[in-house]
Amino acid sequence: MNATEEASSAHFTVDKQNISLWTPETLPKQGPNLVLRQPLTVRVVLICLSLTLATSVVLQVILYPWLMGTLSDVKTDAQVLKSRVDNISTLGSKVLKNSKGMEAAGSQIQMLHVSLDQVNSHISTLRNSVDKANAQIQNLTRSWKEVDSLNSQIPELKRDFDKANTLHAKVQGLQSSLENISKLLKEQNDVLQMVSQGWKYFRENFYYFSHTPKTWYSAQQFCVSRNSNLASVTSEAEQEFLYKTADGRPHWIGLTKTGSEGNWSWVDGTPFNSVQSKRFWIPGEPNNLGNNEHCGNIKVSSLKSWNDDSCDSKLLFICKLPHQSYDTTAHINP
């Protein structure tokens, strides 16, 4: 069977919205109305198919360039997007680097905040110090004003000070005079007290001229019991005072020697001046008569009045007490 025969033997059935195609063998049983409407239905279907194909062709002719342009634009946009994506990737790496930099910057900022806090603390401390310094400056200013006031008073104070120095010098002079007077009064009191007890005063020394004869050693013991010694002679004036007061009566003095060949010495420890003493010996003395004259005395009323004699001879004697060694225990009963 060719195509023409197949086309003539084909049958269509249109039932509302359903279209069916049967072969002659399968053709359903049709009523009288359905057979009449088949040519019209076929035409409609063909028309619809023709319109559909025509519409599809028209749409393809019209839409194809647009679709191709659209596809080209999409490709272009895709390339642009790809380049942008690449740029975004590059920017992402930069952003990552920048984020790390930002983290480092954040840590530095935190360190800066800490430093700023420390700086603020230092600034606060400095402000406190400045406030204290200002307070001290104010105090110093007030003190300086007081100093200026005192400086203005300095000339007057200096005059007063000079007056005070003058008065002080006068007071010291008066005090020295009073001390000297007190010393003189004490000396006079000592002299009066000693004189009242039989002592004589000559050039800072007290002398006691005994009334009872004694041997030289007994006389020395007597003087020692009165805090004194037999008299030593250290000057011509003292020698003159002694021989004049002795009035020509022999008196033991503190002159002695050890053995016949010994040197003369003073019993109170005063150094013996042999050169000076030559002026005080009686001519021809000391002669150590009988090899037993080991003690010295004032024998006559003359500058040359010394004589050596036996220490066992009983003579009057002279005790000597320096005023600086004065002691109220050195009393002598007349």
Rank of each mutant, 00 (worst) to 15 (best):
T4W: 13
T4Y: 09
E5F: 10
V14Y: 02
D15A: 11
K16A: 06
K16Q: 06
N18G: 08
Q30R: 09
L34E: 02
Q38V: 10
P39S: 09
L40T: 03
L51K: 04
I62Q: 01
P65V: 00
L67F: 09
L67Y: 06
T70D: 00
S83L: 07
D86F: 03
N87I: 12
S89Y: 10
S89K: 14
L96F: 02
G101F: 03
G101L: 12
E103D: 14
D117K: 11
S121T: 04
R127Y: 13
K132L: 10
R142W: 06
Q153C: 15
K158Y: 13
D162V: 15
G173H: 03
S176C: 03
I181C: 12
S182I: 12
S182N: 14
K186D: 02
N189Q: 15
W199S: 03
R203C: 10
E204S: 15
F209L: 15
V224M: 08
S225G: 10
R226S: 00
R226W: 02
Q239L: 09
F241H: 02
A246Y: 01
G248A: 11
T256K: 02
G259F: 04
G259E: 02
G262Y: 07
W264A: 00
W266Y: 14
F272V: 04
Q276A: 06
S301D: 14
N307W: 08
S310A: 07
S310F: 07
K314V: 04
K314H: 05
F317W: 00
T328I: 05
A330S: 10
N333S: 09
P334C: 05
